[in-house]
Computed example of a mutant assay.
Amino acid sequence: MQTTRLALLGGAAMALASSAYAGGVERSNQGIDFLFEQGTYVELGFGRLDPDVSGEVVQPGFGNANSGNMLGGENVFSLSYKQDLGENFVVGLKLDKPVGATIRYPSGTGHPFAGSVADLESEELTAYLMYKFSNGFSVVGGLRAQQVEGDVFLASTQYDLTTNNDREYGYMLGVAYEKPEIALRVSLTYSSAIDHTFSASEAAIIPVAGVGNVPVSREGDFDTTIPQSVNLAFQTGIAEDTLLFGSIRWVDWSEFNINPSLYDQIIQGASGGFSYPLASYQSDTITYKLGIGRRFNENWSGAVTLIHEPESGDIFGNLGPIDGRDAIALGVTYSNDRFKISGGVEYSRLGDAESQTPFGAPGTAISDFTDNSSISYGIRIGYYF
């Protein structure tokens, strides 16, 4: 059983160019599989996320209101390049989208967030250097340059936030072991947290007793951390032309918090002193993946992957009301001597979540987001030089 014959299966297994809604805003699992491709290799990936997420808010004394589908469709991408330097060294570059969000609350629903929108955009470039030992082990390190920016508009208070495109740096470290005769590979990687300080412009209209609606604004900075993560991935041949693969990924999402100063002042004033960040998570996330790939002939292979992210039971923000998920992904790959083309689709049942509308004390104006789902699909095109 040769690694080159089973390499088709890995492409089919990982055909999607995204990590759909893992941790709410994560869009890349920071995988290093492309570094193990044969020879010089370049890969371009595109993906699309199409969610259907809605919830009903319970407003004591005002009746209930449904949010409508509040998550917009989103595109993701990746571009990877790998080259051998002699027998032991490998260099690589990867450009992708580490985090993202597209929030679109429909207008006229009666929901407290009706008409509100938010966008989170990012890009990350990672440069890798791997050293392969003669006993199957290898070590890898990388430097990461990450750009993030965002904007928010909350219709109820006419709150408007825009930030600069902030660039900061981090790193990754990893170790791997391969046994090609049984198509075995295990890798463990760590990606550091990256701290961003955004220059923000905030504006809103707030009611003042005896005066009426008063416009307010603020220019200033606030901090946000894109969290650290650990990824354990494996694959192994279990029969002729059949591969078992999977991963366990932990992300420190409890360190993620977006809470600009003027927004926090407005919310505390409207809720009697309680603070509700624009976006935050109370718990970390662990995502499990397990799949089987099968090579059908010299050119075609396919794979199926099961994905589970446990629910936390936490109260979520209104810009990311998703608590865990269960998903199935199907992938297929066509390959010849030069090209590898992979396509895939993933269907996710998104976990039920509760969110606290930030205009009252805890326990009031709770939104229940239930029976939600997402379809993701993507294509990757690889070329061997």
Rank of each mutant, 00 (worst) to 15 (best):
V148N: 03
R185G: 08
A155I: 06
T197E: 12
T189E: 01
N165S: 09
S138G: 08
S134L: 07
H196N: 06
L154V: 05
T197K: 12
R185Y: 08
S187R: 00
V140G: 05
L129R: 08
Q147S: 14
T163Y: 01
M172T: 07
G142Y: 01
K179H: 15
R167A: 07
G150E: 00
T197V: 12
N164K: 06
G141I: 11
L143S: 07
V148Y: 02
D160G: 08
G150Y: 08
L154W: 01
G170N: 05
A176E: 00
L125Q: 01
Y159G: 03
D160P: 08
F137H: 11
E124I: 11
M130C: 06
D166C: 04
E181I: 14
D166G: 03
R167V: 10
Y131K: 00
K132N: 15
E124R: 11
D195Y: 13
E178K: 13
L125A: 02
R144H: 07
S134R: 09
I194G: 01
G136E: 00
R167N: 09
T126I: 09
N135Q: 04
V152K: 01
E178W: 05
D166L: 03
G150F: 12
L184T: 13
T157P: 10
S134C: 10
T126N: 09
G141S: 05
Y128E: 02
I182W: 13
S191I: 11
Q147T: 14
L129H: 04
Y131G: 07
V186S: 06
E181K: 14
N135I: 04
M130F: 07
R167C: 04
L129Q: 02
V148H: 01
L143Y: 09
E168D: 14
Y169S: 14
E178R: 11
Y177I: 03
A155G: 10
S138H: 05
L154I: 15
E181A: 15
Y177L: 02
I194A: 00
S192F: 07
R144V: 15
I182E: 03
A176V: 02
D166H: 07
A176L: 01
E124H: 10
Y131C: 09
N135R: 01
Y131I: 12
I194W: 00
E149A: 12
D151A: 04
M172K: 00
L125F: 04
M130I: 12
T126Y: 03
A183G: 15
E181F: 11
K179W: 13
S138C: 10
N135T: 05
N165A: 14
G141Y: 03
V140Y: 08
G142W: 04
L154N: 02
V148D: 02
V139F: 11
T197C: 05
A193N: 05
I182Q: 04
Q146M: 15
A145W: 12
G174Y: 06
N164T: 09
L173R: 01
L161H: 01
F137S: 00
L184S: 13
M172S: 15
Q158F: 12
S192W: 08
Y190G: 13
L154P: 09
V175H: 02
G141H: 06
I182C: 10
V140S: 04
D151C: 03
F153Q: 13
E181M: 14
S156H: 07
R144K: 15
L188H: 10
G141R: 03
V139N: 04
G170C: 12
N135K: 04
S138F: 11
